[in-house]
Computed example of a mutant assay.
Amino acid sequence: MPAPVLDPTVRHLYVHVPFCPTICPYCDFHVLTRRAGLVERYLERVEEEAARLADEYPVDLDTVYIGGGTPSFLRDAEITALVGSVRRHLGWGRAENTLEINPGTVSPARAALWRDLGFGRASVGVQSLDDATLKFLGRQHDARQAREAVATLVETGFRVSGDLITAVPGQPLESDIRGLVELGVGHVSAYTLTIEPGTEFARRGVTVEEDDERRGFEETEARLTDLGFSRYEISNYARPGQESRHNLAYWEGRTYLGLGPGAAGHYPATPGGEVLTLRRTNPHLHDWLTGEGGEAEAITPEEYVTDALFMGLRLRAGLDLADLSRRSGVDMRTRYATPLAANVERGLLMLEGDRLRATPGGWWVLNRVVTDFLEA
C-alpha cells in the first residue's frame, strides 16, 4: 500500500460559541444560556486554547466559521475580543469567514461591526418566514424580524446564507423558499426537522412522518432549482460561486481545527504511523473551562476512507477515487471492488472514470450504501 499523501497544514477553523438567548425545542447542540461571568471565562479560555493550537499545528487558514449556539448573541465587545484571539494566534481566513446569526440580534450598526471585524459571509437561522411555523419551532424572532435581518445583512455587503427547516406540519414551504430568495440570499441550507433524543420535542412526543420528510426533500430542490439555485450537497443549495467553502472542507475530508467547548476538530497525525488523522471533540463548557482536553479518536486509513465516502457522497459532484486513494494510501478500486460494483448495479452509485457519485436514490439511503463499504 503506498504512503498516504495528506496536506500537513491545517487550513480551516471552526469556533464554537455555546451561548443562546433561549434553547429551541429541537436543538441537540451544546448550547446554554449566559450567566454572570461565564462569557468572560469562555473568552479567556478561547485565548489559551487558540495559543495552544497554534503551537501544535502548522496553520494557514483559508476559512473561519464561528458557529453555535448564537455567536451574534455576544455583545459587541465580546465578539470583538473573540475575533481578536483568533487573529492573534491563528490568523484569519483568506477565502471565507462566516458568522452564524440569529435574526433577532441584527441591527444596521451591528452588521457594520461584524463586517469591520472581517466577516464576509453570514449564515442566518431564518428557519421559516411563517409566524405559525416559527412559533411551533420555538423561535424567538418573528417573520418580520427575519426579513429585516436578511435585508440588512445583504445591504451591508454580506454573502448571506439562509437556513430553513422543512417537514414542519402546516409549513408553507413554497412561500418560505420564494420569500427567502427574494430577499437576496445566495445560499440556502434546508434541513429536515429531526427529533433527537433528549430534546424538548422528543419529550413532548413530536414526530416527523417519512412522507413529509420526502416531500420537503423533493419540493425544496424543485423550487430552488426553478429560482436559479443548484443543489450541490444533500441539504445545501447555492447560486454559482456562493457555495460554503468552509463546509466543503468537511465534505471533502480536509483537516480543520476545533476551538471552543463541544467543538470537534479533524487533525493531521504524525506522518509514517498507522494513524492517518485524529478526530478530537472538546468537552462541554464547564469541563472545557478547567482545561480538560476531551477525547481523541485515532483514524486509520480505512476509517478515513469510509468517513470520506459518507461525507463526499453527500455532494452532487461526489468524490474522486484516485484522489482519495492518494490521500489515504488505500487503493479504492481494488480494496472496495465488490461494494462499488454492487451499488452501481443497484442504481445507488454512478462511476464515471474516477468520479464516484450517489444517485438521487442513493442519497436517500446513503447510510446503507456506506455500510456496504464498512462491511467490506
Results as ranks from 00 to 15, higher is better:
Val15Gln: 09
Val15Ile: 13
Val17Ile: 08
Val17Pro: 08
Pro18His: 12
Ile23Phe: 11
Pro25Asp: 01
Tyr26Phe: 12
Cys27Asn: 02
Phe29Met: 04
Val39Ile: 15
Glu48Ala: 15
Asp55Trp: 10
Asp60Met: 06
Val64Ile: 07
Gly68Tyr: 12
Gly68Ser: 03
Gly68Met: 09
Phe73Gly: 09
Asp76Glu: 13
Arg87Ile: 00
Asn97Trp: 07
Thr98His: 02
Ala111Tyr: 09
Trp114Met: 02
Arg115Thr: 05
His141Cys: 04
Gln145Gly: 06
Ala151Asn: 03
Gly157Ala: 05
Val160His: 07
Asp176Ala: 04
Gly186Arg: 05
Ile195Phe: 02
Phe201Gln: 00
Gly216Phe: 07
Glu219Leu: 15
Glu221Ile: 08
Glu221Cys: 02
His246Pro: 01
Trp251Gly: 00
Glu252Ser: 12
Pro283Asp: 05
Ala298Val: 00
Thr300Trp: 09
Thr306Gln: 05
Phe310Arg: 11
Gly312Tyr: 08
Ala317Gly: 12
Leu319Lys: 07
Ser325Gly: 11
Arg333Val: 10
Thr334Ile: 11
Thr338Met: 10
Asn343Cys: 10
Leu349Gln: 11
Met350Gln: 15
Gly353Thr: 09
Gly353Met: 11
Gly362Lys: 02
Gly362Pro: 06
Gly362His: 05
Val369Thr: 05
Ala376Asn: 12
